[in-house]
Nucleic acid binder design. Sequence first.
DNA 1: TTAATATTCAATAGAATACTTGAATATTAA
DNA 2: TTAATATTCAAGTATTCTATTGAATATTAA
Lengths: 220, 220
Amino acid sequence: MKDKRHLKQELYNLFARVANAMSNPHRLELLDLLVQAPRTVEELAREANLSIANTSQHLQRLKQARLVLDEREGVYIRYYLADPAVARLWLELRCVAAQQLAEVEHTLDAYRNRRHAFETISADELRARIRTQKIVLLDVRPTVEYKAAHLPDAVSIPLDELEERLNELPKRKTIVAYCRGPFCVYADQALERLAALGWKVARLEEGVAEWQLAGLPLEA
Amino acid sequence: MKDKRHLKQELYNLFARVANAMSNPHRLELLDLLVQAPRTVEELAREANLSIANTSQHLQRLKQARLVLDEREGVYIRYYLADPAVARLWLELRCVAAQQLAEVEHTLDAYRNRRHAFETISADELRARIRTQKIVLLDVRPTVEYKAAHLPDAVSIPLDELEERLNELPKRKTIVAYCRGPFCVYADQALERLAALGWKVARLEEGVAEWQLAGLPLEA
DNA sequence: TTAATATTCAATAGAATACTTGAATATTAA
DNA sequence: TTAATATTCAAGTATTCTATTGAATATTAA
């Protein structure tokens, strides 16, 4: 009975190992990117603004904790989320932090300074209005992410192609943009430009991960 | 646009801070205890087998991350979970670890070596059978935890009082025991004794946290 | 006030972590 | 085979984390 204590400790060790893998901001950013789409080390390093070696090491810690898996693809190695449950855990962590740490709200307001500038539309309302054909749902994430998974009926125009492809957006419809989720500014930036050019706009705060967590369908 | 990067980093820092608070096995054990019921530093130290000073320091890290709060009660200071969302995060972490790390299953089998010895009963089945009055639902956790919250119609007999209070359990009914959840051995130990004495027994794997997460009602 | 007690603080040593650099490995294409 | 490239490994250093110890603080009871 008494010697069981170390087994209990061992269990807590294992749980702590997973939390430990998530206890570094860079690793969380990598996870966050992988929630959107699988990527190679080089891509992840570029997007997270890290050195290749450092990125590789962080990825290996995520892999040891079984949060991500990797797969060789020719000369590249592609990392991807080990399980949808990992995305859920990451969303839950963000949710607790946002709920409990007032600094999150403050920092988010500074980061997404256009955050309150546009009408926001709920997932339910979106589903209702998309049927009436009065809106266009716009996915402004990079193409790889759109290809990995996107919301039903969403049109893809990555943020950095928006300027050249404005003609694809009908003037008389409301443009509802979304991106990686409530902690991403891509949609805000797209909407700011579109609003200045005369479109009626609205933002969907949810990204594909939140959408999926809510049990709503995705397209691949 | 470019100087926003540090704001994004700041957000990831905040999220990582929460994960960091959960990245130590002792802190997870303290959290786990607090999910069951609020407790003083001394109680937590005793139950987690830590020195007082060490416990205090760990609790302060949990408090900094806003996972727990404290409240002075005379000469004692009582710690409690900051929010039910924290319990959800902890359950989600355990779930991911159990799902992804094979070692968790192995260690759990060693820790709960009677794990597969008894019939297990699902929450749904319990709710159905408790109406027919053919079972007694037995909460074997310490009294403070039972008082903090317990399942509807549950009878409290803490594990260490079981021997003296056997007469409170009707012989002709099936005893369904539960404790802190799937990673706790209290119920197994109670059932082992009861089965040896001739009761029909079954185990409910869920604890109050899992029960609550499933949206089921609790009693206080 | 004073004594007793619960908790926190401060200082320390030893372990783990993060990032950089340059070398090593593995695959593809020539 | 060889060269080129993506990724990992290894070593070193600065930083952070953990547990212990003993002192400091805050509350209650005398």
